[in-house]
Amino acid sequence: MKLLLTGANGFVGQYVQAALPCVPLPVGLDLRDRAALTAAVAAVQPDAVLHLAAQSFVPAAFENPHETFDINFTGTLNLLEALQSCGFTGRMLFVGSGDTYGQVPETDLPVREDHPLRPRNPYAVSKVAAEALCYQWSQTSGFEIIMVRPFNHIGPGQSSRFAIADFARQVTKIRVGRRAPVLLVGDIDVTRDFTDVRDVVRAYTLLLERGQNGGIYNVCSGREYRIRDLLRQLLTLAGVEATIEQDPTRLRPAEQRRMVASFDALQRDTGWQPEIPMEESLQDLLNDWEKPRQ
């Protein structure tokens, strides 16, 4: 099977390339360039598509919502049209986001796929729109599309723009004496649903094989982790003692206090469940930050 991969250079894309034989889009190709995208897809003639490429950093989405929408929605439309023009009849997996649910009342946890979508930032809006587009095409085009809503990822290689990866970076610097024993954090008394990136990629692989056309699936661990507890676990694993200081610049307005989701639909259709324990994910993150950075 010839798998076309968009977003190959991103955090998840690198794990997809390690796990599966796939054909990435040419380096530097912009999904907004219809002609170049159409030519690239025609050259590959894929049997399946994993569409990861997106502008996914929420602060950047607020700074430039037009760009975010152009990449995430219009870029997806360009990809769908490129696939159609080359006679694609396979399956495509569209990667959305658990962020599309927006503020979820604690009484509705764990969140399931039938929960209303109430996006609260331009990134989430773009993903809701692109997901709706993909559903329409799953019903009216000559190929099948499965949609996923992944929740928080964790694992080695993740950018320090994300909280747990940043904590691992800070803890490692303290451990090797390159930083005073003070950790700068945001609001760490919230909970999130974290899944190891390698388990996420396995879920995507199974859904490409077994997911239902037009189906929407949460990809999550089904476990609620308090950020403060994960930070303490990182400190313990590294054998480090440090004080914790809240940095006001890291606080987000109207933060969701608790989040956990259900992967029942994913398990029902594919048999998937998370396999990598949190302690292993955290240790691998710490080990990764030990390596020299370019």
Rank of each mutant, 00 (worst) to 15 (best):
G239I: 12
Q158Y: 10
A261Q: 00
L31N: 00
A180G: 13
T140W: 05
T76I: 04
Y225E: 06
V182R: 06
M92Q: 06
L117F: 06
A203F: 13
E131L: 10
D284S: 11
D288S: 14
Y225A: 08
D187S: 05
Y135G: 14
T195K: 07
R226V: 13
R34I: 04
Q212C: 11
T100A: 09
T249V: 05
E255Q: 13
G157R: 12
G98V: 08
L235D: 15
R192D: 09
R210Y: 11
G28R: 00
R178E: 11
R161V: 15
P24G: 03
R198W: 12
I174W: 07
I154A: 07
D47L: 04
L208C: 02
P274N: 03
S221C: 08
A203I: 09
A238I: 06
F167D: 12
A124G: 01
L184V: 11
Q17R: 01
F143T: 15
N64L: 11
R175E: 14
D196N: 09
R112H: 15
P116S: 05
S126T: 09
L133H: 07
L31W: 00
Y135H: 14
L184C: 11
Y123I: 05
G28D: 04
T236Y: 10
G186W: 07
A265L: 13
L235E: 10
Q294A: 15
L80V: 03
A36N: 01
G98R: 00
L117V: 13
H66L: 15
S126D: 02
A132I: 15
V182S: 11
Q294M: 15
A48G: 05
A40L: 00
P119R: 00
L234R: 08
L234Y: 08
D47K: 01
L20Q: 05
G271C: 09
V104C: 02
D229L: 10
G186E: 15
R161L: 14
R175F: 10
F73N: 04
A130M: 04
E279C: 01
Y15E: 13
P105V: 14
V260A: 10
G28F: 02
G271V: 13
V23F: 03
N72T: 07
F11K: 05
E290P: 13
L207K: 02
L52Q: 09
